Simulated scan of single mutants.
Amino acid sequence: MQQIIVDRIDQVAEDVVSLVLRGASGPLAPWEPGAHIDVALPNWLTRQYSLCGDTADRETYRIAIRYDPLSRGGSEYIHRFLRRGRGLEVSLPRNHFALEPAPEYLFLAGGIGITPLLPMMRAALASAVPASLVYLGRSLATMPFTEELRSSFGDRVRIVPTKQQGRPDLGTLGPGLDSGALVYCCGPASMLAAAQDAFPAGRLRAERFHPVARAFAPNTEFEAALARSGRTVRVPADESLLEALAHAGRPVQAGCREGVCGSCELTVLDGEPEHRDDIGAPAGRMYACVSRARSARLVLDL
C-alpha cells in the first residue's frame, strides 16, 4: 500500500468530485492508461477508482467519483465527509483494461466511464495514433472533464448530452475506422450492450461498472489447501472462498467483492478453479470473492 494525502477536492460536475492524491513520502508508483487503484477509506471500506490524471506525474494521482444514492458507503463518504489534508492508503495500480497497440482507436465513454478513457486518448495522440472519443452523458452539467477534453483534443472529441440530442447510433461509427482499429468502451450496461451489437467482439475492449448477471452450477463445498501455512480451509457451499479464508484467520485484501476489480487475486498451485469473475483471470490465478472450484480441492499460494 502507498501512503497519500488528499491534496485537492474539486467539484467537476453535478454529483462528481475529482480528488488529487499526493504521495505522503515521495513519488508514487507508475501507471499506464486503464489502471485503477484501491482506496482504503476511513470508514473501513475499500473502493476502486480509475486513474484519470497524467501518467508522467509521479507526484500525484487523480481520480473522480460520482455520488451514488444506492452507494454501499464509498461514494457517500467521499462526497460528504472526506476533507483536504486527510491521509489515506491506496494500492499499487492494477490494470485489467490496458491500451493495446492498434493503428487507430475509437473511445466510447458514458458518464463517469470517461475516467479510464481520458488518459488513453492522451496516450494515443501522444504516440501519433489516430484516435477519437465519443462521450455520452445525461446533460453537460453531469459530465465531468468536458472543458479539459475540448481544450486538449478539440474536434477529435464528440460530446453528446443525450437528454438534448438523444443517443447516437454506435453502428454508424464503425465504417470509417481502420480495419485494425480497436474500440474501447466504459460506461453503463446499456451502452456496453449497444457497443457489443455495433462492433465485432475481437475489436471491442470493455470495462464494466458491475458484473454481468450469469448463471452457474449450484455451489458445492470444496477444500482450499494453503501451501505456505500448511493449513486446509473448508469452503462451504453457502460461503465464498474469500469469506471462508477470513473466518479461518487468513483474510485476503478485497475491494469490489463482485469480480470486477481484481484486488483479491490468488495464485492457484493445483486444482481447477471455476472462474466467475468479469475481468478474465490469468492462467494460474483466481479471484476469491466470486470464483470457486471445479475440483474437490484447490492448493493456493497462501
Rank of each mutant, 00 (worst) to 15 (best):
M1L: 13
Q2T: 15
I4Q: 12
I4R: 15
D7G: 05
R8H: 07
D10Q: 10
Q11A: 13
V12H: 03
V12I: 13
L21R: 09
L21M: 11
S25H: 11
P30M: 00
W31S: 04
P33D: 01
A35P: 03
I37K: 14
I37V: 15
I37F: 12
L41A: 14
N43W: 12
L51F: 08
L51I: 01
L51S: 06
C52F: 06
D57P: 06
E59V: 15
T60G: 00
I63W: 09
P69S: 08
P69Q: 13
L70P: 15
Y77F: 13
I78F: 03
L82P: 00
R83S: 11
R84G: 09
R84C: 14
R86M: 04
G87Y: 05
L88E: 06
R94V: 05
N95H: 09
L99H: 02
E100N: 09
F107R: 00
L108D: 06
G111H: 04
P119T: 13
A124C: 07
L125S: 03
A131G: 00
V134D: 07
L136W: 11
R138H: 12
P144S: 02
E148T: 11
D155N: 12
Q165L: 15
G166A: 03
D169S: 08
D169L: 08
P175M: 00
L177M: 11
D178Q: 01
G180V: 11
V183M: 04
G187N: 11
S190I: 09
M191C: 04
M191Q: 09
A194I: 15
A195T: 00
Q196E: 15
G202V: 05
L204I: 10
L204V: 14
L204T: 08
H210W: 12
P211E: 10
P211N: 07
V212W: 08
A217G: 07
F222E: 04
A224C: 15
L226Y: 05
S229C: 14
S240C: 09
L245F: 09
A246I: 03
H247L: 12
V252K: 03
G255K: 07
R257Y: 05
L266A: 11
R276M: 07
R276T: 06
D277Q: 12
G280T: 06
P282Q: 14
M286W: 05
Y287H: 12
C289T: 05
V290I: 10
R292V: 06
R294N: 12
R294M: 14
A296H: 04
R297D: 09
V299W: 08
D301Y: 08
L302H: 09
